[in-house]
């Protein structure tokens, strides 16, 4: 402590620190964030706001807002039979695809989490549907569903059943599209769940083994709780994806028959780019946005509690 008292006076070259020098970090950060921000602003924030704006107007074919109509677009939607059908189709579609899809992917992931010879090949096969585009898989399934030469009807007629018009019967069309969608999503969900399973500490299982725990006990007490964040993520992504379905509808049914597969994004597409009703299409878009917002918030609110984070 003596040293501090004996200190000689240092010559301070004290240049006053300018704001410029002090803000170095924030300026650098801005530089790194600028591309993202610019793109988000132009292609996400601005169009989202514009969508809301357009939903209050009647527009011309170029999408220029002409007449302010307030909430009339929304009123129109709520009264529209077609929109109600679209909502019903969307909800049913979500219910058909999300739980089943995640369950199947989980089962496959559990199956391939066993360490046996040649498991890599099976993993690759299960994951393969991720590499098949929406358009390609829709076309393949279109053929599988073909009323006369399609694989399914061939099998049914071979065993003496009556062929089904999968995509032309209003009571079957949505189911058919759901099956296609579940198949398409298996790869992605499977891959992520498998990754999640492999992140679980092996020692947990070893200690359970020493305790003599059964497979189901381990599944219930170790696997599912430890996997819950991943499962939660897959569920959220699947749900959002289900709301955004478009390609399979466009190729398989074009929203028909009698609008039974007219899910919301397809409905927006038709309204905007076939009927040029940008106003009502925008109102539907706002509706879609709200749906996804609510779903995400609800999932986080209710899901978060049940999820075990490490």
């Amino acid at each position: 402590m003596k040293d501090s008292l004996e200190m000689e006076q240092p010559i301070l070259t004290d240049q006053p620190l300018s704001w410029w020098k002090k803000s170095l970090n924030i300026r650098t950060a801005c530089l790194y964030l600028l591309p993202s921000f610019f793109l988000f602003a132009v292609f996400l924030f601005y169009p989202m706001a514009k969508t809301v704006y357009l939903s209050f107007f009647l527009t011309d074919q170029q999408g220029i807002a002409n007449v302010f109509v307030g909430l009339e677009n929304y009123q129109y939607l709520l009264q529209s039979e077609s929109f109600r059908k679209s909502i019903k189709a969307t909800i049913l579609f979500v219910l058909y695809t999300v739980p089943t899809g995640v369950m199947i992917a989980l089962a496959l992931a559990l199956l391939t989490n066993e360490k046996v010879k040649g498991i890599g090949i099976f993993r690759t096969m299960y994951a393969s549907t991720m590499g098949v585009s929406v358009a390609a898989s829709s076309v393949v399934w279109l053929f599988l569903f073909h009323p006369s030469i399609g694989f399914f009807n061939k099998i049914i007629t071979a065993i003496g059943g009556e062929s089904v018009s999968w995509l032309l019967d209003p009571s079957w069309a949505l189911v058919s599209i759901s099956v296609t969608t579940i198949w398409m999503n298996i790869g992605f969900s499977f891959l992520i769940l498998l990754g999640g399973l492999q992140n679980i500490d092996e020692q947990l299982y070893e200690s359970a083994k020493i305790d003599g725990a059964s497979y189901l006990y381990k599944l219930r007490r170790i696997t599912i709780p430890m996997l819950s964040p991943t499962l939660f993520f897959v569920l959220t992504v699947s749900l959002i994806n289900a709301f955004q379905t478009f390609g399979q509808v466009d190729i398989l049914t074009q929203g028909g028959p009698s609008e039974s597969t007219n899910v919301i994004v397809y409905s927006i597409y038709r309204e905007a780019f076939v009927n040029y009703q940008f106003g009502t299409a925008s109102a539907q878009s706002v509706f879609l946005f709200l749906c996804i917002l609510i779903v995400t918030i609800m999932q986080f609110k209710f899901g978060e509690k049940k999820v075990h984070y490490q």
Binding site: L33, S36, F40, V42, F43, L44, F45, Y46, P47, M48, K50, T51, L54, Q62, G63, I240, F243, Q244, F246, V265, I268, A272, F273, F278, A281, S282, S285, V286, L288, F289, I292, L293, T296
Partner: peptide, 26 residues
């Protein structure tokens, strides 16, 4: 806060913005 703003963009479905985006591209 800015990171949160980033993450919240994941909640905007791209399809909900496609009409104005299309107009912009046009």
């Amino acid at each position: 806060a800015i990171f949160f703003l980033f993450i919240s963009t994941m909640m905007i479905p791209w399809e909900a913005t496609m009409i104005p985006n299309f107009i912009t591209i046009q």
